[in-house]
């Protein structure tokens, strides 16, 4: 494995560890998303990988070299890891070119043109950070990290400060850049769509523990627990016999004939190509989609395939509450 994290523990106060025990591995060139809520320790995790925070125990291996193991601690300036921070910290006293080539070894200077072309920053070289837009600043940070040919690229919430129109194009660009340069990348995000769109694998992190680590499709269709299921999208709850099951809204179909599932419509939201319907079944709130609008207080029949039912252990639902 290219990046291997084993039994990583990190705390600032030993009573409240931020990372309790984290183990996972990444292959060369893979883009993985690290998904978790705000304040769950995602940025701390990235800082541990990059050496900006010391870990309390565990090992980190990158490209067959130990970065952290017992007494081994490779200083952050000696790890070949590129880090793009959430707030695009370009040095304010340097122009774009100086920022990208800051403390750069001579052997990498020949790559400048390629990186500038890749990130579309060719015409902004002499501009200072305050003369660049948010998207340009972010691409500059990515260019600064990539020009050094990092063995690992860490992206900390790179889309959180962007508006929705630029966000989509940035996502595509980042995906294109890291795949073209075959750079192993960890993307930290709290936005499930970001993770689903461009990741080879998703790692869900909660309460200091890895909850699930898999490819997006498997993650969505076979969530390991309620938390993973809910974080990846809405779930509709239903009881069959004494067991509790869940079904995704997109797997529910509005049917014209009578079925076992009669939903009382409470709200109908227009979403462009379809309508999102909020209703009540068996005292539980359900969501599903419809091509046509449905009036409020109307009763409609819905159905789904049995294979789309998801089952969890009964204690799971209350675990995180």
């Amino acid at each position: 494995m290219y990046l291997e994290v084993k039994n990583l523990v990190k705390f600032f106060d030993s009573k409240y560890p931020i990372i309790k025990d984290l183990s996972f591995s990444v292959k060369k060139g893979e883009l993985i998303s690290f998904l978790g809520e705000s304040g769950s320790g995602k940025t701390t995790f990235l800082k541990c990988i990059s050496g900006l925070e010391k870990i309390n125990s565990g090992t980190i291996t990158l490209n067959s070299k130990y970065l952290n193991k017992n007494n081994i601690f490779v200083k952050p300036q000696e790890r070949k890891i590129g880090f793009v921070f959430q707030d695009y910290p370009l040095f304010p006293h340097l122009n774009l070119e100086e920022n990208i080539t800051f403390n750069l070894e001579k052997k990498y200077y020949s790559k400048l043109e390629y990186i500038l072309k890749l990130t579309g920053l060719k015409y902004f070289l002499k501009r200072f950070p305050h003369e660049l837009s948010g998207g340009e600043q972010q691409r500059a940070c990515i260019a600064r990290a990539l020009i050094r040919e990092p063995e690992l690229l860490l992206l900390d919430e790179p889309f959180s400060n962007l508006d929705s129109t630029i966000k989509e194009s940035m996502k595509e660009e980042i995906f294109k850049i890291v795949k073209e340069t075959n750079t192993t990348t960890i993307l930290v995000t709290h936005d499930i769509n970001d993770a689903m769109n461009i990741s080879d694998k998703i790692l869900i992190f909660k309460a200091g523990i890895l909850q699930q680590y898999d490819n997006p499709v498997k993650m969505y269709c076979e969530p390991a627990n309620c938390y993973c299921a809910e974080i990846l999208g809405d779930m509709n709850k239903l009881f069959i016999g004494n067991e509790t099951y869940y079904v995704r809204p997109e797997n529910i179909k509005h049917v014209n004939k009578k079925s076992n599932y009669k939903v009382s419509v409470e709200k109908c939201f227009f979403q462009g190509k379809e309508y999102r319907i909020k209703g009540r079944f068996d005292n539980e709130i359900w969501h599903f989609f419809s091509k046509k609008p449905i009036s409020e207080k109307k009763h409609v029949y819905v159905d789904f395939a049995k294979k789309d039912l998801i089952y969890f252990d009964p204690v799971c639902k209350n675990f995180f509450k």
């Binding site: 300036q77 880090f83 921070f85 403390n103």
Partner: peptide
């Protein structure tokens, strides 16, 4: 993060 970036870039 300005300091973190500096350290990450080898300072």
């Amino acid at each position: 993060t300005i300091d973190d970036t500096g350290r990450n870039l080898g300072l």
